[in-house]
Simulated assay, not measured.
Amino acid sequence: MPTLKRVRECGHSVILIAPNWPGQLWLAEIMQLLVDQPWSLPLRRDLLSQARREIFHPAPDKVALWAWPVRG
């Protein structure tokens, strides 16, 4: 994942918003850079929207977004 590569190479500290999908290779990479407990984002209809909040994701519950505090 290019974002994680840049975090690692540049020593950045970020809160990465990404799904918590066990079994994904990039999730193992996130775990290696984790510096604190991740937390789940609240399930809201407007969590993922576009077009100035006129179009919403059809199934935000399937995405399972989490905030991952990581440091390179």
Rank of each mutant, 00 (worst) to 15 (best):
M1K: 09
M1H: 12
M1G: 13
M1E: 13
P2F: 06
P2A: 06
T3W: 00
L4Y: 03
L4E: 02
L4H: 07
L4R: 02
K5P: 00
K5Q: 10
K5E: 04
R6D: 01
V7S: 00
V7K: 00
R8Q: 02
R8N: 03
E9R: 01
E9C: 00
C10V: 01
G11V: 07
G11H: 01
H12I: 01
H12D: 05
H12L: 05
S13N: 05
I15W: 07
I15L: 03
L16W: 14
L16S: 02
A18L: 04
P19H: 10
N20L: 10
N20W: 12
N20P: 07
W21L: 10
W21A: 09
P22M: 01
Q24I: 08
Q24W: 00
L25W: 08
L25V: 10
L25K: 15
W26E: 14
W26P: 00
L27G: 08
L27V: 11
E29L: 11
I30L: 05
M31S: 12
M31T: 04
M31G: 03
Q32I: 07
Q32V: 02
Q32M: 11
Q32P: 04
L34R: 08
V35H: 06
V35N: 09
D36F: 09
D36H: 08
Q37N: 14
Q37Y: 07
P38E: 06
P38A: 04
P38R: 01
W39D: 05
W39K: 11
S40L: 09
S40A: 15
S40E: 15
S40R: 15
L41K: 14
P42M: 13
L43I: 12
R45Q: 06
D46W: 04
D46S: 11
L47E: 04
L47Q: 07
L48R: 06
L48H: 04
L48W: 04
S49Q: 12
S49F: 09
Q50M: 03
Q50P: 01
Q50F: 12
R52W: 10
R53T: 15
R53G: 12
R53H: 13
E54G: 14
I55F: 09
I55E: 14
H57G: 06
H57D: 13
P58V: 14
A59G: 02
A59E: 14
P60C: 12
P60D: 12
D61W: 15
D61C: 08
V63S: 05
V63D: 08
V63Y: 10
L65F: 03
W66L: 04
A67W: 13
A67I: 02
W68N: 06
P69F: 07
P69R: 01
P69K: 05
V70Y: 06
V70P: 03
V70W: 01
R71W: 02
R71F: 00
R71E: 02
R71K: 12
G72W: 03
